[in-house]
């Protein structure tokens, strides 16, 4: 399943500032603070830094609530960083959100599709919002619909679609403007094995077209299969990053799942130590130590 842009349609290169061509995504000490009733102010992202190159899939691996979604929401300009910077295709997310949005394709659990629109209408609507000329848009839609095998659900309303169909429409929506950067936030969660597999293939084919891809997940197998480099994120901090081989060598652990557990346990132990050190500080989520990581056989 290869999604190729139509003739003369290559937004990827055109959208990038030449001097940032090498690093499509750059995060520099990105920090995000939230405040809530229970714990007061807390850091959802704590000085997160990484870069992603074109043609590379960067995996963001972490348990639920680690800060993956917050990080990707900042990259998609939906949230604003509290400090630090994130530059995508040469544009800062905080200062040039519109330019950033035009250059990313974003897909997550939270990017649903409209119930009262057909698949064709929905993808076309977003294509228009990206300002693609109508003739070019129709051609692009035809290409996408045939490569994703969506022609039979063209006229189906969102409310009548199965989860798999919806996921396809979401992918179509995310790639309609052929963005140089793709961000997938747990795109396979809640999908059956068949659909998940198809999504993984779609991501791979996008990488083969030279797109710069961030892929967040809590499923180890997907990471091993798909990602060129990964970052393990926990409690808003990056515990380790590098290619899978590098991480294996560095931590002397061949099994990536074991590696993951070791890193996280170490982090929890450190946190507990820190808490014990200053007794007067209030329970900042100590009750969360029993985290639930979904592990697939």
């Amino acid at each position: 399943m290869i999604i190729r842009a139509g003739p003369g349609f290559s937004l990827g290169r055109r959208f990038c500032r030449e001097d940032h061509w090498q690093l499509m995504i750059q995060l520099d000490r990105l920090t995000k603070k939230f405040s809530d009733f229970k714990t007061g102010e807390r850091l959802a992202l704590d000085h997160v830094s990484f870069d992603v190159k074109p043609g590379e899939i960067f995996g963001l691996l972490g348990p639920n609530g680690a800060g993956k979604t917050t990080c990707l929401r900042i990259l998609s300009t939906v949230l604003k960083p509290s400090s630090g910077s994130a530059i995508i295709a040469g544009y800062d997310v905080a200062t040039h959100p519109a330019q950033v949005r035009a250059r990313i394709g974003f897909m997550s659990n939270n990017t649903g599709i409209y119930d009262r629109m057909t698949a064709w209408e929905l993808v076309e609507y977003y294509g228009r919002l990206y300002g693609i000329p109508q003739a070019q848009l129709t051609q692009r839609l035809e290409t996408i619909f045939s490569t994703l095998q969506m022609n039979e659900i063209r006229e189906v309303l969102g409310s009548k679609m199965s989860t798999g169909m919806k996921q396809k429409v979401s992918i179509a929506r995310a790639i309609v403007h052929d963005p140089p950067v793709m961000i997938f936030d747990e795109p396979t969660s809640g999908l059956d094995v068949l659909v998940a597999r198809r999504v993984i293939h779609a991501v791979e084919s996008l990488r083969d077209q030279g797109k710069c891809i961030i892929f967040s997940t809590h499923i180890m197998r997907e990471v091993e299969k798909l990602c060129d480099r990964i970052a393990i994120i926990y409690r808003g901090r990056i515990l380790a990053q590098g290619s899978i081989e590098e991480l294996r060598d560095k931590h002397h652990q061949r099994d990536i799942e074991e590696l993951f557990f070791e890193l996280i346990s170490a982090c929890d132990a450190e946190e507990a130590e820190r808490l014990r050190a200053n007794e007067d500080s209030i329970n900042t989520g100590l009750d969360d130590t029993s985290m639930n990581v979904e592990v697939r056989p």
Binding site: R73, S76, T77, V78, P97, A98, R101, A102, I104, F106, S108, N109, N110, T111, G112, I113, Y114, D115, Y126, L129, Y130, G131, R173
Partner: peptide, 14 residues
């Protein structure tokens, strides 16, 4: 509620 808010927020429209 229907989870389409974020889809709209990431579109180029301000």
């Amino acid at each position: 509620e229907r989870g389409t808010m974020e889809t709209l927020l990431i579109c180029p429209a301000s």
